[in-house]
Design a protein around this nucleic acid. Structure first.
Lengths: 151, 151
DNA sequence: CATTCTTGGCTAACTGTGTTAGCCTCTATC
DNA sequence: GATAGAGGCTAACACAGTTAGCCAAGAATG
């Protein structure tokens, strides 16, 4: 999707119907001939992101490596990460099983312990969001914070 | 602030310059005689929220109790929680020390270990956001996830 | 071959957002 | 009593998502 490039090149704010249309050499209303609205675009982006994040985690073994990979992916795709994780998911229009598939590698690494998997996910999500939002002090040692969290 | 009531009664979307003005019996442009813009309102709300969250945590002792209190406060004030925690903080216009004061109780409970404090914060933040965004399955045992995370 | 339908573009326009410019009135102060 | 400031107001702008309705090119069908 062209939306992704726009998102990452210009930032989250820049993903507007008109700018996306312009990038496609089209006028905004024409977008609605292909897509039902902004919501659907975000859902498509979220699906792409979840798939990719799942694959990224599947390539790692061990919680520490997964944490590192999670963070790296998020910092490399900050706007997409936000779109995919900081809104309610439109599960109606998401290919079924996609969410589970994205979570599978982590769940496996934790021997199927869903509670620990959720806690890990929340920890990683929180650390990433706080970092992206500049909520930690400039001099914070985030590597150490991750290490502390995974202990 | 009247903005807070509006925020919690009607949801985050409902906090608009015009609706806030209307609640104050005023027209939107008149707001700018009191406030520099939406940004400043959000900063004021964030300050209020941070103060309150700090006090809430200060009333608890032990990580588990703090976690419970954190979650409860966030679920009781979801829109305000978001405004206060999911954006970059405008530190220029925030009374100095406020951030540290809000974090102090937690830091103390962790014997001054900043890394563990950041990890705890991130865990709590992540759990709360994922819950607020409906990202966990309907039947997820979030109490257990919190417990797993604090272990 | 002619007709019809579908696809995918377009312009114009509506509502709602934050915000600015400029005016006017009341009230306190010298 | 003149004056300055505080705090209202209306009108307007740019930009957001979105809808309605038109039109042209190509596919499908008689």
């Amino acid at each position: 999707m062209a939306a992704r490039a726009l998102l990452e090149e210009e930032g989250e704010e820049a993903l507007t119907m008109r700018s996306l249309a312009e990038r496609l050499g089209i006028k905004a209303p024409s977008l609605y001939k292909h897509v039902s609205g902004r919501q659907e675009i975000e859902t498509l982006l979220a699906a792409e992101a979840l798939t990719e994040m799942g694959e990224t985690l599947a390539n790692e073994s061990g919680l520490e490596a997964m944490g590192r990979a999670y963070r790296t992916w998020a910092l490399d795709n900050p706007a997409l990460y936000r779109v995919a994780t900081t809104r309610p998911l439109d599960r109606e229009n998401l290919t079924p099983g996609l969410e589970d598939a994205a979570a599978a590698p982590l769940l496996e690494a934790l021997d199927g312990d869903r509670n620990r998997a959720r806690a890990f996910w929340a920890l990683a999500h929180g650390l990433v969001l706080l970092e992206l939002d500049g909520r930690f002090p400039e001099d914070a040692d985030l590597e150490a914070a991750w290490a502390a969290g995974l202990g």
